[in-house]
Design a protein around this nucleic acid. Structure first.
Lengths: 209, 209
DNA sequence: ACCTGAACACCGTTCAAGT
DNA sequence: ACCTGAACACCGTTCAAGT
């Protein structure tokens, strides 16, 4: 049960330096935000020199993008599972997607910040990120379209209704992670209650009257 | 009409270095994000040495916090104006608050990011920021309470309904500013349309049935 | 009171050299 | 193929010294 996060003393090769660096990034972001992450500190925690990361990542941003990609690769199956779990109820599927998204963000704050935050300077350099992002959004759009076909949601562009829903859950999670809710005097419990109520209010507004 | 942003050549005193540094910060954040802002570059643009800013700000974070404070000092009057403009219609006041918030964010992206983003490492060091933040939130809560008294919104904790509304507009603005909407394939026009529709859907959900 | 110049510790990144 | 050590340009911050 060797610790894969640190190089064995005296060993020349690391084992899985790529993994260890990504884990160090997640830890550092959790500890002190994305600004608090430095390549040198990540290398130090993995027990290698400051130059070693450049064998595995082209630069600092490339490492962060790899963590973001890992995040999408965790989120998308969770969203799919939420849909599968509610095969019979199209409205429940939409609510389930929202809850799964929120749960993912709260459980994976470092990943979430890198996936959706302003920290990746050149997203064009990582096209796979955009593709994964779009795929999640398409799941939501399709769930909304399905509910419309069943006559349970009001008419309107599914894409637009999806974007409204996304803005709500995205705003909820990121303002929570940024500490805005705490600043406004909400406890974690209250914040959670509001998330559920928020989804309820919005769904009510989207519902067929 | 002297350029207050640069020190006159040969002049020893600057004139208003504090202002010039804050303006440089706004510009740098707009150009390359908060990560792209450096104290040294701001000082360079103001025409002073790298140590000069420390006469006016205790450190880098203090300068950024000053810009955030300036942002709240612009936002709050805009919110108040939105309320005054719709004295007679409590529902219009809520919608007006949302639109004013969105308009502020789109027009003052650098300020908005610093006010609500994760970039200020120690917000406790700047208590006035939390106060101003809360004041804006109280405006929204009161508008909601008023609409409830008039029987136009469903019952429920105004604070909680305000938080839901805040999450929606906050999510809309910050995902727009972070480029997420563009990534999802929405044009600026579409994004704007969705903002309006989003407010409509949510208000509909909050309305008394 | 306000600013400069030099200094320190730190960072991202490169590159020749080691195993 | 993978990593080290030294180097470079840059950054935040401090401090003695200048005006």
């Amino acid at each position: 049960m060797a610790d894969v996060n640190k190089k064995q003393k005296g060993q020349y090769h690391h084992g899985d330096l790529r993994r260890a660096l990504m884990q160090a990034a997640v830890d550092l972001v959790a500890e002190s935000g994305v600004e608090g992450f430095t390549l040198r500190e990540a290398a130090k925690r993995a027990g290698v020199s400051a130059a070693a990361p450049y064998r595995h990542f082209s630069d600092r941003a490339d490492l962060l993008a790899a963590v973001a990609t890992e995040g999408f690769n965790r989120l998308l199956p969770a969203l799919q599972a939420a849909i599968d779990r509610t095969e019979d109820d199209s409205m429940a599927a939409i609510a389930g997607l929202g809850l799964a998204f929120v749960e993912f963000g709260v459980s994976n704050p470092s990943h979430f910040k890198l996936m959706y935050g302003p920290h990746l300077p050149d997203r064009a350099a990582h096209p796979e990120l955009g593709d994964l992002d779009l795929e999640g959004f398409r799941m939501l759009s399709q769930a909304i379209a399905r509910a419309q076909e069943e006559g349970r949601l009001t008419t309107g562009e599914p894409r637009q209704m999806a974007l409204v829903s996304f803005a709500l859950v995205y705003g909820a999670v990121s303002s929570y992670l940024d500490g805005e809710m705490t600043r406004l005097g909400f406890s974690t419990r209250e914040a959670q209650a509001m998330l559920e109520a928020g989804g309820f209010y919005l769904l009510r507004g989207l519902a067929r009257s």
